[in-house]
Amino acid sequence: MGPLIPNGIISSDWNYIIAILIGFAFGYILEASGFSSSRKLAGVFYGYDFAVLKVFFTSAVVAVIGLYYMDYLNWIDISQLYVHPTYVWAAIIGGMIMGVGFLAGGFCPGTSLCAVAIGKIDGMVFTLGLMIGIFIFSEFFNSLEPLFERSNLGHITLVDSLNISPYWIIFIFTIIALVAFYFSDWVRSKVKKVFY
C-alpha cells in the first residue's frame, strides 16, 4: 500500500533517482504546456490565454479525484500523505506578495526553471531574483518570524476546516473547475487576441 517509499516498499536509496525522473516529467509537461513563456502565463490575468487556469485546475482535479479513488481502493493511505501546514496569515500575505511578483515577473519558481532551461534570459533574471528574495527573507527572518509562525493550524485539510466529507468537497471543487473552464472560454472569446 502506498505511499511506497515511506512505507519501505521501495528502498529510500531510490529516492533521488525517482526525484530526478519525476522532476524530468514535471519540467517536460510544464514546458510542453507553454509554461516557459511568461506572456502565456500572464495571459490568465488579462483574459487572452487561460492555459494556466486550465492546466492548474485540471491537474488539481485529476490528482485529487485519483488520490481519493486510490484511497478508496486501499492502494494509498491518504492520511500518510504530506499535507502542507496551514499558517493562515503567512499563506495570505505570502500569497499576496507572490501575486504581485507573478504579475511583475511573469513566472513562478517552477516555470522560471523551465524558462531557464530553454534559454529565456528573463527567466534567468527571475530565478536570480528568486534567490535574492530568499536571501532577503532569511536575513530579515528575525523580524518576519512573528508573521511566519503566526496562527499555525497545523497540517489541516479542508475536511477539518469545513467539517464536511472530502467527497463532497471534491465534487464541489470539480464543478467549480468545470464552470471556470467554461467561463474562461467565454471571456477569451470577448477579449482582444494577443499574439506572442
Binding site: 479525484i65 471534491i170 465534487f171 470539480t174 473547475a177 468545470l178
Partner: peptide, 12 residues
C-alpha cells in the same frame, strides 16, 4: 467534462 463530473459524483 461529463467524465470528470461522473468520476467526482462517483466518489460521493
Amino acid at each position: 467534462a461529463a467524465i470528470l463530473f461522473i468520476l467526482a459524483a462517483g466518489l460521493v
